[in-house]
Nucleic acid binder design. Structure first.
Length: 198
DNA sequence: AGCACGATTAACT
DNA sequence: GTTAATCGTGCTC
């Protein structure tokens, strides 16, 4: 089994971490079962000046985790029904994180299908709220350390990718943010993957 | 205390 | 293409 990515990995510039996360695996151990997928799409949110980032409002009960140490899960609730999974990056005190937007399902596909109830394999984890539903990630995971040995939630290295396999474009669903933040090319994805969000 | 809205999804026409 | 679902958060009164 591959080793967990370390805090040192996440304590770097967010765009670097986001790019290198492509192909890495998000793993959640649930009742002894290993639920996992390869990260095929993710977005960077960087600092209080990024008007699309939750950290723009400063330290609040909700954003506190984002301001904390890297390698910790920031899980938040939105649209009255959806949970979003993020990984905190950069140094303690700087509000930055990476939203994991889509996975290529690998382990525990039968269990993930039971959690989702809808759609086929490509629809299983092809969106930020779909993958949290499939992997059963929710409010309990906000603030969980992904880098300790005993955590049930972590990130592993995956198959190495060539630079040409990684695409880059503006972030999804941030039309509320003013320029230049709305158009920052901070979304990364694996080119040609059928598992990215629609 | 009340309000507008959201880093979305699925089900519509 | 449009829209309902559904509630925590941050802001205004």
């Amino acid at each position: 089994m591959a080793a967990r990515l370390t805090r040192r990995f996440f304590a770097r510039p967010t765009l670097t971490v986001a790019r290198e996360l492509m192909g890495c695996r998000l793993v959640h151990r649930v009742e002894g079962r290993r639920l996992s997928g390869a990260i095929v799409e993710a977005e960077a949110y960087i600092g209080e000046e990024d008007r699309a980032c939750h950290g723009r409002v400063g330290r609040t009960p909700r954003t506190e985790v984002m301001f904390g140490q890297p390698g910790v899960a920031y899980v938040y609730f939105t649209y009255g029904m959806h949970w979003m999974f993020n990984i905190v990056t950069e140094r303690d005190g700087l509000a930055a994180a990476i939203l994991v937007r889509a996975l290529e399902p690998i382990d525990g596909i039968d269990v993930m299908r039971a959690h989702r109830k809808l759609g086929g394999l490509t629809a299983l984890c092809s969106g930020p709220a779909k993958l949290t539903q499939a992997l059963r990630i929710d409010r309990r995971h906000n603030g969980v350390d992904l880098c300790t040995r005993d955590s049930d939630l972590w990130i592993e290295a995956g198959e190495p990718l060539k630079p040409g396999q990684i695409g880059r474009c503006p972030r999804i669903g941030v039309d509320y943010a003013p320029e230049p933040w709305r158009s920052k090319p901070w979304r990364f994805f694996i080119r040609g993957s059928p598992f990215i969000s629609k």
